[in-house]
Each structure stands twice: as structure tokens, then as C-alpha cells.
Amino acid sequence: MTLEHISTSRSYTGEQQVWRHESTSTGTPMTFAVYVPDHAPGTKLPVIWWLSGLTCTHENAMNKCEYKAACAKHGIIFICPDTSPRGPEVADHEEYDFGQGAGFYVNATQEPWAAHYQMRTYVEDELPKLVAANFPVDMERQGISGHSMGGHGALTVSLRNPGRFRSTGAFAPIVSPLNCPWGDKALTGYLGEDRADWREYDSVALIKDGARIDNCRVEQGTADEWLDGQLKTHLFTDACSAAEMAVDLHMHEGYDHSYFFVSTFMADHIGWHAELLKA
């Protein structure tokens, strides 16, 4: 598969790169960002996959997350995919929480979304294979994290693929699309009315159905305007407790849902991943 180089910028002791390719999953061009720390020739580095939230492209985390210094320090590659397929031929919606920029990391089954909205396959299968073939990543040392809709994606991808990730994190995740307005809207549109089909995209339901992961950490601001109505962190921690699955929950007093919150705690979050990603 051919990669098109978009840009490279020197940042700390590494390179922030942007690439584009034709995706077989979505049937569209897809753009992703990758930060590669300096390393000795032939060395393979651990990797963290970052899934962004509603309205984001690959650029939001790249420009606002403040991950580069920490990744340079710890020698970790950091990958930021887009959140949906894009283009004039791709179905869209006039509201921010559905359509382009709001793929929810699902494989859509309903028209007109099914033609291109195959983000589960893209982030779970296609992009990892592409990255493994073209960048110096050690696929035995993977971590995953994300923000909001991307936190939902990180948790569900990890729960569906036990053993793939040594570390699973999330900032202000949508923990249960089955139990919030954002999820109800998106999953009805992408997957249809049968809520049984939604369970594989709901971290709480996956845990109740027997899925387990090790080394899970959640960052959540107490002043997040979406905490009570959309995120409902307690549903995840309750499910983990009932399943005797450990989760390291960090409630950050006074922080909201924004990238100001994410960037404040990103270095510490990456440090936690780094300890688990050591050879």
C-alpha cells in the first residue's frame, strides 16, 4: 500500500510526520499523524495509538495534546488517526455528533453510512498493518488511549482484542454508548435499532459480557460539562468492580472536557504507559 508523505517537522528529539493513503476499509483517502523519536538504526520502538473525539481530525491531538516531549523522553511512537472517512462522496450530517468527524470507531451496517464508515476495521486492522510495515514499531509493545469518543474507541478496541495492548488509557471517555444521547444517536444511525448489535461497541456491555483487560487507566475532570449526561464514568467503574477488573481512575478536580485538560496530564499519562511498554 502506497503512503503519501504530507509533512515532517522537527519537534524535541524526534519528527512529527503526517501521511496519507488510500484506505481499503473506508474506500477513501485517510490521513494520520505519527511522531517518531530519534533512535538507533534498526531499533524498534513501542507505540501508543491515540483515538480522538468528536469533530477532530488527526491534527487536533497533534497540535493540542502536548505528547511529543514525553514520547521523545520515553522513546515511544505516537499515532493519531482521523476520526472518520472524509470527502464529497462520503455521507455526512449537519450536526457535529454524527457523520464526518464522528465515526465512533464502528463498522456501520446501515445505509448510506455502511459504504465508507468502517472505522473499526480501519483502526483495529488496516492501520496497524500499514504502520507495522512502514515504521519502526515493536508490535509486541502497544498501548492505546483516546479522548471522549476516542476514549470509547480505545476501551472497546482493547476489550475486543485481549492481550494486544500492554496498556489501555482514556481521557473523559464515553464509557457506555448504550446509555447516553451521543451513543443513542450515533449507534442507531450507524448500526440500526437492534440494541443487541451495539454491545460490541460499549465498554460496559463488553465487560458484562465477559471481556477483560489488564492495566487500564482513566483520566476524568470533575468539572467536565458532559460527565453526568454523556460520559457516566461511574458505569464503567461499577462494571469493573463487579467483574473484579482493576481500573486506575484519576479524578482531576476542576478540569473540564477540553484539550487544556488532556494536555495538562498527558505527560504523566504517557509516563504510565511507558512503564508498561518497557522491553
Score class of each variant (00 low, 15 high):
S7H: 06
S7T: 15
S9M: 15
S11H: 12
E15L: 15
E15N: 15
W19H: 11
R20T: 13
H21D: 04
T28H: 03
P29T: 07
F32M: 04
V36T: 11
D38R: 10
H39C: 05
H39L: 12
A40R: 13
K44V: 14
P46Y: 05
P46E: 01
W49P: 13
S52M: 04
G53I: 03
H58S: 13
E59Q: 14
E66D: 13
A69K: 15
A70C: 08
C71I: 10
C71W: 00
A72V: 04
A72D: 15
I77W: 00
F78W: 14
D82K: 04
D82N: 09
D82V: 04
G87S: 11
G87Y: 04
D92C: 11
E94Y: 15
E95Q: 07
Y96F: 13
G103A: 07
F104A: 12
V106M: 06
T109Y: 01
Q110P: 01
W113I: 00
W113V: 01
A114G: 07
H116K: 04
Y117Q: 05
R120N: 10
T121R: 03
Y122T: 01
V123I: 14
P128Y: 12
V131H: 11
N134S: 11
Q142L: 12
I144Y: 10
M149F: 02
M149L: 03
G153T: 01
G153P: 11
A154P: 01
V157H: 05
L159R: 08
G163S: 11
F165C: 10
S167Q: 15
A172C: 13
P181E: 10
P181R: 08
G183W: 00
A186E: 08
A186T: 13
T188E: 08
T188Q: 11
G192L: 10
E193T: 11
W198S: 09
D202K: 05
V204N: 06
A205V: 05
L206D: 00
D209S: 08
R212T: 12
I213R: 03
C216H: 02
E219T: 03
T222I: 06
A223V: 08
Q230P: 01
H234T: 07
T237E: 13
T237C: 04
D238M: 14
A242H: 07
E244I: 00
M245V: 01
A246Q: 05
D248G: 02
H250S: 12
H250K: 14
M251C: 09
Y255E: 09
Y255I: 06
Y259D: 06
A267Q: 09
W272G: 11
A274I: 04
L276W: 12
K278G: 10
